[in-house]
Design a binder for these strands. Structure first.
Lengths: 209, 209, 209, 209
DNA sequence: AATGAATGAGCGTTCATTCAT
DNA sequence: CATGAATGAACGCTCATTCAT
């Protein structure tokens, strides 16, 4: 049923309306995503209301719905942004290493992954909360796993190691790394260096000739 | 991996702005009314938003408010168009009959009314939805009833029939016709011929010397 | 997405909670329907919010939704109540006349219908606003038309009149009466007596041997 | 026809009150937990209301709150049940192997873990949904990791393998297994045998002298 | 112990209308 | 003339929890 009073009709008391600032869609969208990200981290996903988001972004509620059909849609946009950033950093780290030294490339991936994850786990938690088990595979995880699997396959072809199944190995390495870093975070240990050393040694065992 | 507040890639695609076409006011108005009519019929009045209308008409939202002060105003314009059409058809049918044969003139009116209504009931429903009971009398209904009452009065003066009250008779004839045709529509019977036959007989009884 | 704060959690400021009155479901339901009816008449259907209804009924909002799944559901219940009442009054009027005098039975129906409608048209408008055209046939209208058609058929079998189609006649009589009374209401003429006299004469013409 | 406020017939059917059955607390608790588990799996945690649970368990709402202070408490109880079952199965598998053959003990653990997870992943998803990232460490995961770490430490002391850090190794093995099995589930491959073979080979590389 | 009517704060979403460009 | 980003008041509905019986 429709609203009883005509929206947009003159308000009972004249209040100074908010100054209207017209911004390019792209900029507004980004402001909104960032406001949402900050609040999701600080208060959690469910506890953050659309009112909170628009208040922080300094716009009216309608503006939010001008850009996102649904509260859940901001999360989708945020996840996209997050994953692309993760992949870009890992790729940069790998490419900084000569593409003939496969163990060094893996270690570069490992260090980038550990430190990026340690630096952003709070956002990570928000962004993947609903995806870990439910869907088990997401475009986002596939992007990351695919990247690592490609690295492993390149090493395999070059004879750097001998893996029965590159995708499965990528999963063990990624999720193994994830689990160890999660445990470190829970223990309050946020320095990547010792973790990387230990993981290089432990995970390196899987990458044997 | 981005800080939460970092501006990133925009998830909203840049759109090529619509080509701006200047059109004569009457044409624009007509496009908008027709777009609205189609949508009102397809989805209902309340369910059709101004956004829907401008999307279908291929113009921007502001353009709508150049031509109509209010969403309700399109409906008013549509109602006008509809009623004039109805009256014109009825008038044409009546005038095709010699103005001395009053029973034949009534039957001509009846056939025109039944078939016009059957052909347009979906638009009729939209256009009169809020008028049937609420206001009980509208300029539009009065136009139609006045037309029929005039026909009845002419017959009365010529001694073709004897009615205590021409307006009341017009109402009984018009609403009686309406009710029977509504029932036929609900039953899926959209052919005017059998309805006209039956109504001529039934309603003719009111028009007796 | 779920509410961010746990409903039922202690409110920030302790306010004296409303005294809880437990009532039989039937009684609560009826109070709610009546509150809704009053408000629908006074302010219209759309303009009446669920908040208005519960405020008038003196209960919490949740109580409303304990009994009705939807705002529209109260209207359904109200329509039911209205129609049963209309049919009951018409039946009582008919049955007060010897079942051999068919014209008198019809006139009894007519007087009951006109005066009941005149006395309740505001509620009628609310209750049937969305049904008149849209659905064209409703359980409720069918109930009333069926009742009148039965009366007409009884008279037909007894030879009191000669109708080609009892249902169609019932529709003409009912909707004809409706249209004339609507016009009278619009003209501010709420006294049933003159209307009944005129309608008896006019509609009686349809009921001829 | 009724005045708007007249009490009328109740549209709510009178229900026969449910027969009141007194049951031992433990039985009631178990019924409720099982009802909740079924619904959590079928519809998700958030989408399952306390009303749903009591409806399925066939008790009144108040009864639920006799046994659980909070909706979240059922989930806690369910998690407890789930984890104890998992640990018990793993323990049974390990103990069926001579405690001198450490690699075989690990493989026994692996097979039990994979097949138990594959058989129960839907319940697992529900039960750990909110724990995976948020808290990163739970009593429940610690129980499982502790069990595996103990196995690894025993092998370490016996010289079966040489690990820098038993807990970290347990995490890599457990989460690595988890990731590979999740991927298999997503691919619709629910047979444990091929997974176990591949994982024995891949994870076995970590357990080297 | 068991019932089920009652509570109410809270939230996501809608959409007619305005106005800077 | 035309555009479309921005506004914001309003509303229906949810559901965990309480408590009189």
């Amino acid at each position: 049923m429709a609203a009883a009073t005509r929206p947009g009709a003159a308000p009972v008391e004249a209040r100074a309306p908010r100054a209207r600032r017209v911004l390019p869609a792209e900029v507004r969208t980004d402001h909104l995503i960032s406001a949402a990200a900050d609040l999701f981290i600080a208060q959690g996903l469910e506890a953050t209301t659309v009112d909170d988001i628009v208040a922080r972004a300094g716009v009216a509620k309608g503006t939010f719905y001008h850009y996102f059909a649904t509260k859940a849609d901001v999360l989708v946009a945020l996840r996209e942004r997050f994953s692309q950033d993760f992949a870009a950093r890992a790729a940069a780290a790998i490419e900084a290493v000569p593409d003939t030294d496969h163990p060094a490339r893996f270690n570069a991936w490992l260090r980038a992954a550990v430190s990026t994850y340690l630096a952003n786990f709070r956002l990570h938690d928000v962004v993947f909360h609903d995806f870990t088990h439910d869907r088990r595979r997401s475009r986002e995880k596939d992007m990351v796993i695919g990247q690592l699997a490609a690295l492993l396959e390149a090493g395999q072809e070059a004879g750097a190691w001998n893996l029965p199944n590159a995708r499965a190995a990528a999963l063990v390495l990624f999720d193994g790394m994830h689990g160890v870093v999660d445990d470190a975070i829970a223990a309050g240990q946020l320095d990547p260096a010792p973790l990387c050393g230990m993981l290089e040694q432990m995970l390196g065992r899987i990458l044997v000739r």
